[in-house]
Write a protein that binds this DNA or RNA. Sequence first.
DNA 1: AAGGCGGGGCT
DNA 2: AGCCCAGCCTT
Length: 349
Amino acid sequence: MMQRSYALNLLDDKVGFGRALINWYDEYQRDLPWRQAPTLYKTVVSEFMLQQTQVVTVLPYFERWLAIFPDFKTLAEAPEAAVVKQWEGLGYYTRARNLKKLAMVFVNLEPPPKTPEGWQALPGVGPYTAAAISSIAQGYPQAVIDGNVVRIATRLIAEGRLFGGSAEAHRFLSPLVQSLLNVERPGDHNQAMMELGATVCTKANPLCVKCPVSAFCEAFRLGTPESFPVLLKKVLVRRQVARICCVHEGAILLERRPSTARRLADMYELPHAEPFGLLLEKEIPVLIKKRGIAQEIIEEPIYQVMKEALSDTTLTRADLHWVPISEVDQVTLSGPHRRWVKALLEKLY
DNA sequence: AAGGCGGGGCT
DNA sequence: AGCCCAGCCTT
């Protein structure tokens, strides 16, 4: 049986790979706020915000967050509503609730966790985040595997098998990725891998010319870096959800999602039109919004209605609230609804 | 092992 | 119009 041939010398020269990577990182790393005067708290907050969220999106949220919740204790003692409010628009809101829970546990924890296993016992911390926190903030020699690392690793060895889910990819790549870790500087090595994936070894149009480790890369040698990794495609589902915009005596009617809702719990939205039993099919929506969420494409026509068109019985529903326009900024709206409400109020009133 | 969970950037 | 992003939790 022939030994699978990898690029020139990745497996024979892991130290060389790590050195080339870390030298590149030392010279070209981005100036990110959580890297300035780093602390354990900054690392934890940034890693939570960065779960499934791009750096550029996180930046303004991170700066605001540190100004309002400067440390674990402040966060632990802050009301949950205030915490979620600061997360407004960032998505995956259980991250915010879990981050506050983590702070509440952390301030009563002596000593703090020092291993990935210890961190992973805390709310909202999975394998990735546990490895990231303990390596970056504590120097623990644990390699992280995220989407960037999967892309880099599969390209390094030109691994073309189909991965059904990320768990499968992680299981397969973990030994290789861990074996490449620079145990002298595990935190910087991990960040360098992700930085490389974000800025050079990108999904489309990778900048192999600027890559510090292209000499170790089998996909580069083959000239087909974009063909790795091979991931299962997800099916897109389309939905339509009609909503209403109703303003009366300086207040807008909003619907609060139940506290028990799996998604967007306790957050406000423009009310769903359907429960009101209005005949809207022939009406012209004042606004038609489209948005993509995960594997869904949702089209949401918004109809302007007068209060008189809504029956008194439906208006007594406990989840409906007349929010004064001057106080709309105080409540937490679900993502795009914040922008839609603003656009509607400017357009109509 | 799947499916749900947000929203936005980028091609 | 799709894909992906410094993933985690529940079922």
